[in-house]
Simulated assay, not measured.
Amino acid sequence: MDLADIDASAWAELETAAAAPQSGFRHVNLCSVDAEARPQARMVVLRAAGRATRCLEFHTDTRSRKWLELSANPHVAVLGFCPQARLQLRLQGTVERHGPGSERAETAWASLPGRTRMTYAGGPPGDERAFEAMDELPEPHDEAEGKARFGVLSFRARTLDWFELRQQDNRRALFRYDETGAFSHGRWVYP
């Protein structure tokens, strides 16, 4: 496989993961930096991926710390590992936030199932919560509350660090993309 094929294959894996809940790349780490310059990593669900633009999409509660962190510093890393493919993808780039009421958030919200929408209707992420008794259902929330707190994170990759674990001779390649997402450079590096 040449570098162009590897790059295309990596993005095909991400596109598949966005549509397949069982994919190894469906849940990835989104790593930002907080106000004290400390790295912050958390698992997020990959909702969309675009090979042509080198973009990934994630959903979040706009009351979350990551939403605030990304308003101050949009530079992030995304890290995923698929055990079946024995493949690690590490991407670096920037995030653009799309808040409640934006066209991007409205479109994404409309495609969410009701159970997912209710995720955004509870208390703010990180706030203390008393768990209900196992036999009791929590009080229902108004779905409109969730919509008012729903945001979309659009990530555009500038680099991809591709790493394949093998029985022998692990392989690693680095890729760069321009501001439009076009492939600009790739090279093999030692693992």
Rank of each mutant, 00 (worst) to 15 (best):
T119F: 12
E136G: 06
G101H: 08
Q92D: 14
E145P: 02
R166G: 10
G151F: 04
R158G: 14
S111E: 14
L165M: 14
R172Y: 01
Q167S: 13
P74N: 01
T119Q: 05
R104F: 03
E139S: 12
W109M: 07
V152I: 04
Q167E: 15
E136H: 06
V152W: 00
N170D: 15
G101I: 06
D127P: 02
E143A: 12
M118N: 12
T116Q: 08
G122D: 15
A133R: 13
A108P: 05
R115D: 12
P140N: 14
F163G: 11
A157L: 08
E132N: 11
E128A: 10
R117V: 07
H98N: 11
R172W: 01
Q92M: 10
E143P: 06
R90P: 10
Q92T: 12
P113C: 12
A108K: 01
P138W: 07
M118S: 15
A130M: 09
E164Y: 04
G80C: 09
R97I: 07
S154G: 05
P140G: 11
A108Y: 05
A105F: 08
A144Y: 03
R149I: 02
L137Y: 07
A110W: 10
F131I: 11
K147T: 02
G80V: 08
R171E: 13
E139M: 13
Q88E: 15
A108Q: 06
R104D: 09
F131H: 13
T159S: 15
Q88A: 14
H75P: 06
A105L: 05
D161F: 05
E143K: 11
F163M: 15
S111R: 14
P140S: 07
E164L: 11
H141Q: 13
L165S: 11
R149D: 02
K147I: 01
G146M: 02
D135R: 04
T116P: 03
L112T: 10
D127T: 10
R171T: 09
T94C: 15
A85I: 08
S111H: 10
G126K: 00
R166T: 04
F163D: 07
D161W: 04
E136R: 14
G126F: 01
R104S: 03
A157V: 12
P113L: 13
A77P: 11
F150I: 02
R158M: 04
E136Y: 10
A85Q: 15
S102C: 04
F155G: 02
R129D: 05
W109H: 03
H75V: 03
D142K: 03
A133V: 06
G146W: 00
L112H: 03
V152H: 00
A130F: 04
T116M: 08
A144K: 09
T107M: 06
P100V: 07
D169P: 02
F163A: 15
K147R: 13
A121Q: 06
A121I: 02
G93V: 03
G151I: 08
P83S: 12
V95R: 00
V76M: 00
A105Y: 05
R117W: 04
A144W: 02
A77Y: 02
G114Q: 14
A77H: 07
G99D: 03
P140Y: 08
R115L: 11
R171Q: 14
M134K: 01
Q84A: 15
G93Y: 01
A157K: 03
S111G: 07
G80M: 07
L112E: 13
A105V: 03
P83H: 11
S111N: 05
L89T: 01
L91W: 01
E132Q: 08
L79D: 09
G122L: 13
L87N: 10
V95H: 00
P140K: 14
